[in-house]
Nucleic acid binder design. Structure first.
Lengths: 182, 182
DNA sequence: TATAGCATGTAATTAGTTACATGATTAA
DNA sequence: TTAATCATGTAACTAATTACATGCTATA
């Protein structure tokens, strides 16, 4: 069974308890989004496919007149998730960074424009760091209440990653100022 | 004029001298690919669009019976590139990392599987670091011969980025071993 | 003489975003 | 009563990869 990565995001989110598509989106948005995002346009069709494949099961749980389907893993779904987690398949990773792309070509612009670019990059990563900090209490909760170690570790990776880039930007700001003069 | 990012990659690669589509691909492959990739399926159609828009110009330079079109920036093309480089538009950035995605869910597997995952991640980033190291001499050349500072700085960012992840993986390997027991 | 590299391109597919459409419930 | 949030979904579009097709040139 060849599943897309988004399918595994969904299976993974259902590993502890059932969730609606809406909830999955919300959980993704303050956890995996920093290294793997998902939109409604992916989640709902994917849930349908996973159900047809017998990997998840949708249980109708209407709240008043509001329809609501909470999905849970089937035995096969759990097996599929664990197989993927334990499989040694090559781990694809990519960084897509418009700031770095501009930085690469920055010989073509003035020292002022170079500095503006690096400052913008730093500010962007500072905002990302702040968002992650705001989320951290939830991940700590998951650790203490459900004994899950890895979501918090992953978030702390994200925090360290943002700090790494912020520091690099600060270094570049100094380097450009020193070499470019004014 | 709203251009896709790949259009700017191409304009940027033509900033110093003319290149064929084939050459652009080769240059991208050992420079921007680490944070912005491009395939033939993007490059050739995009060159055509840019030519129609008057931003690049293709000059037929057949080598024997082999057709060959070297593209260069027009005045408008150069302006477009510099406008983009100097524009304060939000710098979109994303990390898409399958290793981190698995790591996030790794509470679901054994300590051994957790360690295997982190080791695989580390090895992947070690390979990426080695590739970048192999490329570095070319970037040093560009610095000394063409006085371009930024391609080398960008590559050094990439190297530091790989080292950052490699160190984090090593730290996680120790942490998992300490907490997981055996 | 055959293989690697130079060179150009298209077609099909996949992945993903964005915008839209709908409607119920809860809290201010 | 109205705005925010919960909830489900589709359609259109955009970006990008992969595979394929073609053919020349230089080198081992």
């Amino acid at each position: 069974m060849e599943l897309g990565k988004t399918a595994y995001v969904i299976l993974g989110m259902l590993r502890t308890r059932p969730h609606t598509g809406y909830e999955i989106k919300a959980i993704v948005d303050h956890s995996t989004r920093f290294f793997w995002a998902a939109s409604y346009g992916q989640i709902y069709p994917e849930l349908k496919r996973l159900e047809e494949a017998g990997l998840v099961e949708g249980d109708a749980e209407p709240q008043g007149g509001r329809r609501r389907r909470a999905f849970s893993l089937t035995a096969e779904g759990r097996r599929e998730l664990e197989d993927w987690l334990a499989s040694g398949e090559p781990l694809h990773s990519e960084l897509r960074h418009e700031g770095l792309l501009r930085f690469f070509f920055a010989d073509a612009v003035s020292t002022e424009d170079q500095l503006d670019l690096v400052r913008d990059m730093r500010e962007m990563h500072e905002r990302a760091r702040d968002e992650m900090r705001a989320i951290r209490p939830k991940a700590e909760e998951a650790r203490s209440e459900r004994a899950e170690q890895f979501p918090l570790r992953t978030l702390d990776f994200g925090l360290a990653y943002q700090d790494f880039i912020i520091d690099w930007c600060a270094r570049m700001e100094r380097e450009i100022q020193d070499s470019g003069g004014s």
